[in-house]
Design a protein around this nucleic acid. Structure first.
Lengths: 185, 185
DNA sequence: GTCTATAAACAGATAGAC
DNA sequence: GTCTATCTGTTTATAGAC
């Protein structure tokens, strides 16, 4: 709270006027970020196309979101894997949980549609979603280690573009049967 | 430190007899875990075979490690993505960094060998390593959310086995060219 | 809405007896 | 090596003036 107060140019006590507790502030921030994520991902799917096209756009949109504000990917990953011991106590937290659930449902539906159409391999959907999260969010949350592994800044525009291509190549060869975009068969 | 003291049945002050600071204790724990990880992954590679066989065993071994002590995956993920602001100040920390570097180098070599042999698609190696970390470690660190997405405990033996299969299927279809295990072509 | 001042609790660490 | 007691600084939060 001290660091936040310094950053925004207020005194620490003033923060408690806007958010009654630290937990409430955290939940509000996470909720706002998830709101943006839900909005953008919904937009990316609304453009239509085949399931594979929608999945590709979904991945691109998610990566764009992670890159837009580097701190968000860290916060997202944290909020995803750190079990909130005070789970669902705050309204902001419940709202965030619902947003997350809808985001996951969207991904589930795209995968299900693609499988029904025969565009996507019959993989286990929940595990595939976990893999998608791991591949997209972890990468941009990986900070120093990520930079060291990649060799340059993971947020450098060129490297972000490469990530998108690599992830989609990975997905296509991993999930897409008889894809026209697959130049290795 | 209070919680650790309670858990191990000591008083808080006694912990400071074994580790001079909290940071030193944390570094020692991370270092010990990475030691186990390095040992097991090295063993899994030493058994030889094709690059794809070694990669598969490497993934299986990493998943076995994450499952052996559920808390380890959380700690691993945390230590990977949270930049240690006091980076490399403690000897345990430097040792842990070196272990991590060797683990990553092993993965890099397997991928490089496989590409040289034409067994593995010519993907970007660093990005592939990031994806491997995301797919294996994030999943087992995902706690409540992971359990909710999957529908049962991510640590249930049956579900762990499924994860191994799904990850390897993902990798094969994503990284392996002309694989005999690929039933979809 | 922001400030100063302060309360109340907690966390990391030390001193020294046993 | 563990304990009790204590110090010191930090953190979350409140009270009340402006």
């Amino acid at each position: 709270m001290s660091e936040i107060a310094d950053t925004v140019g207020l005194r620490k006590s003033s923060l408690f006027h806007h958010f009654r507790t630290k937990a409430e502030m955290y939940a509000a921030v996470v909720n706002r970020i998830l709101g943006e994520v839900e909005l953008e991902l919904t937009r990316s799917l609304a453009k239509g196309g085949t399931a594979v096209e929608r999945l590709d756009r979904w991945v691109d949109a998610l990566i764009d979101l992670m890159v837009r504000t580097p701190a968000h990917s860290r916060l997202m990953l944290r909020s995803l894997f750190e079990d909130d011991e005070l789970s669902g106590a705050l309204p902001e937290q419940r709202e965030a949980d619902e947003r997350l659930e809808r985001i996951i449902l969207q991904a589930r539906n795209v995968l299900r549609d693609g499988m029904a159409q025969g565009e996507i391999r019959a993989a286990n959907i929940p595990h595939t979603i976990q893999s998608l999260i791991g591949i997209t969010i972890y990468h941009f949350a990986s900070g120093d280690l990520g930079n060291e592994i990649i060799g340059t800044s993971i947020f450098a525009p060129k490297e972000v573009e490469r990530r998108k291509q690599e992830v989609k190549a990975f997905l296509h060869h991993g999930l897409v049967t008889n894809s026209a975009t697959d130049e290795h068969r």
